[in-house]
């Protein structure tokens, strides 16, 4: 059983709160540096694309948003499974906070994709397989958020959303594959997306920076929201009151005023 000690530790909000507090700067600082650095690099120093001109620079925010939004759903579904199988309270909190973050990133990737499409394809919206898939992902996120808000009982909300997240995760490969199939059926490859693999290395390096930066920022945001969630749920516990109120006397005095 000794192997499972880490697991029980992770399940404890108290341990997580203390541990995540130490982890925060290690995610925030490199994340911000990589993301902002990658953006500046991509905007100012990379030569424009041969075919698309300068509009290709949108890739440096579009692709990270889309990739992290996709990964976030799988992360959320994993947390959902952990919550259902081992009844880990912390996993329920993580699942709840990931949904709005993932939905924001999905929205961001849709809008940046549309704005990128205008100068590249001459139209804001194309029913391309990838765009359609991201749109469906957006709806899946919104469904989970709506379901969570509909429940008054927090525990039931978490469990219901966990079931829905897992059902969604099982369905995502099927949905993506069917959309891919649908697109190949209706559209002879007239519009070719610029695949990431064909990108020149000088253009790829800033993308790697913004992509890894976005992952780190996502982790940072998840920690921030989860910590707020822990304070909200555990506010009647002694350990949290002692930790937050005696550590900073100025803080409690200010709140008392």
């Amino acid at each position: 059983m000794a192997n499972w000690a880490w697991f029980h530790k992770w399940g404890s909000p108290r341990w997580f709160y203390q541990f995540s507090g130490r982890l925060l700067p290690w995610l925030a600082v490199p994340g911000l540096l990589l993301f902002i650095g990658g953006c500046v690099w991509g905007l100012l120093f990379v030569p424009p694309d041969f075919k698309q001109g300068n509009s290709f620079r949108i890739i440096y925010v579009h692709v990270p948003a889309a990739a992290v939004a996709m990964g976030a759903y799988m992360f959320m579904a994993t947390a959902a499974a952990v919550h259902l199988i081992w009844r880990m309270k912390l996993a329920a909190m993580v699942m709840k906070v990931v949904a709005p973050i993932g939905a924001s990133l999905t929205f961001l990737s849709l809008v940046t994709g549309a704005v990128w499409g205008k100068p590249t394809w001459g139209t804001w919206w194309v029913w391309d397989a990838r765009i359609t898939s991201v749109l469906i992902l957006f709806f899946l996120y919104l469904g989970i958020i709506a379901l969570h808000q509909a429940f008054e009982n927090r525990e039931a909300a978490a469990k219901a959303c966990a079931v829905l997240a897992i059902v969604g995760a099982v369905n995502i490969p099927i949905i993506y594959w069917s959309v891919e199939w649908w697109y190949s059926l209706h559209q002879p490859a007239s519009i070719k997306f610029i695949g990431e693999s064909t990108i020149h290395p000088t253009m790829l390096r800033p993308l790697m920076a913004t992509l890894s930066g976005m992952y780190l920022l996502f982790g940072w945001l998840v920690l921030l929201y989860t910590r707020a969630e822990i304070i909200d749920r555990e506010r009647n516990t002694r350990w949290l009151q002692d930790m937050l109120l005696t550590d900073r006397p100025a803080d409690s005095a200010e709140r008392g005023a």
Binding site: P48, G53, I58, P119
Partner: peptide, 12 residues
């Protein structure tokens, strides 16, 4: 940005 400025800057 050769005419693409508004798109690019909006996205960022």
């Amino acid at each position: 940005m050769d005419g693409h400025g508004s798109y690019v800057w909006f996205c960022f």
